[in-house]
Amino acid sequence: MTNDEQSTRLVLITGGGSGIGRATALRFAQRGDMVLVTDIDETAAKETIELVNAVGGRGAWYRQDVTDATGWQELSDEIAGTHGVPDVLVNNAGILVTGSFLEQSVADWDRLMAVNLDGVFYGSRIVGEAMVQRGRGGHIVNIASAGAWVPNRVAGSYVVSKAAVLMLSESMRIDLSRSNIRVSAICPGVIRTNLMAHGTRAGVSDEEAIRFRDNFAAAQQRFSYAGPRAVARAVERAVTYNLAVVPVNPEAYFIAAARRLAPGLTRYALGLGGLELGESLLSTVDRARLALTGAERRQ
């Protein structure tokens, strides 16, 4: 693409109603791009476009279920007819299901894979084909996770889906390069988003699931090194410099290195902790925080 084309790109972002998707939409809008935001939550998608307009950007929103392949094709056709073929596709939509391997049901597995993996495949396949037919190239960015390198007992299905997204991205990169379509995978560490707040805890009662979700959502907000804007910056870097894989946050780089240099030791260390240990550590931290807060108030 020429510099003029790059300055007015059409950027399509799934799951753009909040978190990483919203931050990415604002990032591209602020640099002059036209952003199209999709989300299964219409209200959230509208709010993102209102924020885009507030910063002087241009955009439009669409309701979308990324697990619907027919819906993907219809959306792609509608966008092409109204705005043209996207120059950049960001496959961001994703969900989280936690619980040990035997706690998660077939339905849990199917739902998570439908959003986290099938949705990425459908979007990349359908929008990628439109890019090829246009003949001007493009860029596909898939939001994977540092979890792609982390086998664990807490969210096995989630990290499997993200490992699949990472490998899919690298395979697409070498395949679609023939058509001048670049592909990048972004691998964030723990980011301050609503992923855990909207997540599901499998294999326990509704009451226990709510308690688990609330505890770990609070931990995600308190202990995350960075917010969604850090990932949005990584997406922009990947598009600007044609980067294949971009870890985000120090823990993501550490995990990637540990997995490569000492895979056995990494698996052993990760096998020491499970859901119960995580909740126990969180409770300990909370008690310590409350004790310190109380001591400060008494001073």
Rank of each mutant, 00 (worst) to 15 (best):
G274T: 12
N215T: 15
A238T: 12
A262C: 07
Q220L: 12
E236G: 00
L272W: 01
V231R: 02
P263L: 05
A218Y: 08
D214P: 10
T240N: 02
A244W: 00
A269E: 04
F254V: 09
Q221P: 12
Y268G: 00
V239K: 08
F223V: 09
R229N: 11
A217Y: 03
V246D: 00
F216Y: 12
Y253L: 07
R222I: 09
F223W: 10
V248C: 05
G273A: 11
Y241G: 04
V239Y: 13
A218P: 10
R260F: 08
A257P: 07
A258L: 02
T240Q: 00
Q220I: 08
T266Q: 03
A234R: 03
Y225G: 12
E236H: 06
A269S: 04
L261Y: 11
R233N: 05
P228H: 01
R260P: 13
A218W: 11
P228R: 00
A244C: 03
A219C: 07
E251Q: 14
A232L: 08
Q220W: 12
A219K: 03
R267A: 02
V235Q: 04
P247H: 04
A226G: 01
V248S: 04
L282K: 09
L261G: 10
L261K: 11
L272H: 01
E276M: 09
E251N: 14
Q220S: 13
F254M: 11
R267H: 13
R267T: 09
A269N: 03
I255G: 03
Q221A: 15
E276H: 09
L261W: 14
A269M: 06
R229L: 15
G273Y: 05
Y268E: 01
V239T: 07
A262N: 07
A230F: 11
R222M: 14
A258K: 03
A230G: 06
A252V: 10
A217W: 01
R213Y: 04
Y225F: 13
E251G: 10
L281P: 00
N215Q: 15
R260I: 06
P250Q: 11
R213G: 06
L270N: 14
R229V: 15
G273V: 13
E251W: 08
F216R: 08
G271W: 11
A258N: 00
A217Q: 01
S280Q: 10
A232I: 07
G278M: 06
A218K: 08
E276Q: 13
T266N: 02
L281C: 08
L277A: 13
V246R: 01
I255L: 06
D214L: 04
N242Q: 07
L272T: 00
E276D: 14
G274S: 12
A232F: 10
G271T: 07
V231A: 01
L270T: 15
E276A: 14
Q220R: 11
R267N: 12
N215G: 13
V246F: 12
L265M: 09
Q221C: 15
